[in-house]
Write a protein that binds this DNA or RNA. Sequence first.
RNA 1: CGGGGUGUAGCGCAGCCCGGUUAGCGCACCUGCUUUGGGAGCAGGGGGUCGUGAGUUCGAAUCUCACCACCCCGACCA
Length: 491
Amino acid sequence: MAKELTTRKENYAQWYNDLVIKADLAENSAVRGCMVIKPYGYSIWEKMQAQLDRMFKATGHVNAYFPLFIPKSFFSREAAHVEGFAKECAVVTHYRLKNHPDGSGIVVDEDARLEEELIVRPTSETIIWNTYRNWIQSYRDLPILINQWANIVRWEMRTRLFLRTAEFLWQEGHTAHATMDEAIEETQMILKVYADFAEQYLALPVIRGVKTESERFAGAVQTYSIEAMMQDGKALQSGTSHFLGQNFARAFDVKFTNQQGQIDYVWATSWGVSTRLMGALVMAHGDDDGLIIPPRLAPIQVVIVPIYTKTAQLKQITDVATAIKTRLEKAGFSVKYDARDTHKPGYKFAEYELKGVPVRLAIGPRDLENHTVEAARRDTKEKQVWPVDSLEKRIESLLNDIQQSIYNKALAFREKNTYRVDDYKTFRDIIENKGGFVYAHWDGTAETEQLIKEETKATVRCIPIDNPKEEGKCIRTGKPSRERVIFAIAY
RNA sequence: CGGGGUGUAGCGCAGCCCGGUUAGCGCACCUGCUUUGGGAGCAGGGGGUCGUGAGUUCGAAUCUCACCACCCCGACCA
C-alpha cells in the first residue's frame, strides 16, 4: 500500500475523510448521511463514553433511557424549540408494510397510517420534560440529575463522517432544579467537565464560552460551549451545555411546591457531547501518516511487532513478547501482540501508525540477543532502544509524555493561529487567507453578526467566560463594545 | 434546495470526443517460490449485467433522452 494521505493542503475535507476511512474508524453506510462505525472506531468511542460516564457519575448524575420516538404534539409545545428543529426531523407516519398487489415488491400500507406522527428524536428535551411532569411535585423531588446515552437523528442536508451525520451517538444530560442559581451552576459545572475531558483525555485545548443569541440552542436561555481549533484553523464546537430557564417546564407544565409553599416552574438544563468528538480527535491530532490517538483514549496503547526470518525465531520472539505483554497488562496498559505471519513488519508499522497506536515495540533477533526492544512513539516517530527490564516505567512515562506533547502541540497551534484584530480589513484578510481564531470587538447585535457572516463566513464562536472587559469599537460598525469575542469559520 | 462534478472488478482510474475483435491498468485478492529491522519480488491466476431504463444503429462503455445514486461548493447544523 502506498502512502496516500497527502492531500491535506489541497483538500482538507478529503484528507479528513480518507483518514477516517483508512484508519478503520468508520465508513458511509447504505443509508444516506448515516455512517457505519467500525470496531476500532467504536472502541475509541467506548473509551470516551466510559470516561465521561465516570465524570458524570462523580458529579452526582445517573443514567436513564427515554423513547426514540416523540409524538409530534410534544414537539411543538416549545415555540423556539420546534422552530429550531422542525427542518431536520425524520418522521414516522406508518406502522406496517404490505406486498404490492401487482407483486412488484413491498410498499407502505396506507391503511396503517398513524393517528399522530412520531418524530425520531433529534434531542430529547420534550419527551423527557413530558415525563418529568409526573415525577416532580415538591422541592423534595429535586434536583433530578439524569443522563442518557442514545442515538439521535437530525436530517442534515450535508453530512461528513463523525462531524455531521444524519444519525449520531451522544449523551444528553437533562436536569431539573428548584432554583435558577442551581441550574446555572449545573450548566457551568458540566461545561467544566467537558473542558476537563477534552483537555485531559482528548488532549485538545478548548475555550469555554457563551454563545451569542443567534447560535443559541433552540429553546435555551443561555448556551455555553467548548470550542476547539482544528488543524485547518476552523473552529469545532465540541460540546454544549444549556441553561433552559423555565421554558420547558412551562411548555410541559412541570411545577413544584417550594420550601415556602409557593408553586413555581422547575428550572432546567441540558447538555451533550457526541461522536463529533471522534471527528475532533482526527482533525486536531492526525497527520499525513494517519491518526494520533491520545494514550488515555487509545484502545491499544502499545503494539508489539515481531521481526523474524525463520519460524523458529518467531517462536522465541513470541515467548519474549508474550511475557512483555503480560507484564505491561499487569501494569495497566492495553497491549496488542501482532504475530500475524501474513503481513511483514513494515506493513504492520504503517498500519498501526495509520490507526494512531501511541507506542510500538519491535522485537527482532538483535533484541533477543541484547535483551532489548525498539520503542517508537507515534506522535514524533522517534525510536529508541530500551532494555527489557523496567519496561513498565518507561512505557508509563512515554505514554504520559505523548499525552502531554500532543496537547502542547495543539495548544501551540491554536496560539499561533489566534489573533487580536481591530480593523475589518485585517480581519477579513486573516479569516479568508490564514484561518484561525480572531479576537475582535463586536457591537453585540445579531444584525452585525449576520452581516459579518455573510461577508466573511466567520461567526462568533463564543464569548469566552472570564473574558477581560475592554473598551473598544465594533470592527464592522464602529459602535462601542466592552469586550472581545472570538470569530472563526466553523464546522 | 441552488451551483459544479462523477458513476467502468473490493478500492482508485483509463477508454467515451471520433461506435467496430474477447473492455484495460494500478492497488487489493488467490496459488507457488524467494523474502521479512519501514507498506516485499518474480511467475501464474480469479473476479465486470461498463449506475438504471429506453432510443438510434448491422453493431453502444462510447451517440441521444429520461431517471437514479454518490461526491464537492453553498444555505442549515452537535
